[in-house]
Amino acid sequence: MPSLPPLLVKPVDLAPLWLVERVARHLFSGVLKAHPDLFERLGAYRETCYGFSPVDLPLHFTVVPAMKTLAVSRGAPPLVDARIEGPLVLLLGLLEGRCDADALFFSRDLSVTGDMEAMLALRNALDDSAIDLPRELGALAGPFSPLVAGTARYIRGKALEGRDATWN
């Protein structure tokens, strides 16, 4: 199971919550703006409160797509309608549709709880959306866009190396 190196975990662990939340919200808002089709495929499940809990980070992300809200918390996982847990790189791989959710579920790399209809709708909506996180990150970086996008692509490639995580 891939997990984040301590070198990356420590700074996130020490960073103030408002800062992590601010970066995550920017990215989330950029993704929603660039992929309005996500809402269409999500249908009524856009109202669902989704929880994402990376097992290798002491953080929980709570998202309600319809409200365009994202919250980050530490400690006990907050109450949500549907939650997915797994290593951060795999959660991000799923967000981009680079990994097959069923395969990660069969291998026990991921676990899901709560409303499975909502979770399935989100999985399918993300899978069809062609989200490219390095590109979205780059778009937030102004003049440093090529550098940020390139670095993010390199990290993604390294993190998902050896996984069934590529497509044409």
């Binding site: 680079r98 959710a101 069923d102 999985r123 590529t166």
Partner: peptide, 13 residues
């Protein structure tokens, strides 16, 4: 048909 595009690409190729 219920599987993701990563699965489809890998299995078909």
């Amino acid at each position: 048909r219920q599987r993701g595009k990563a699965y489809v690409a890998e299995v078909v190729s």
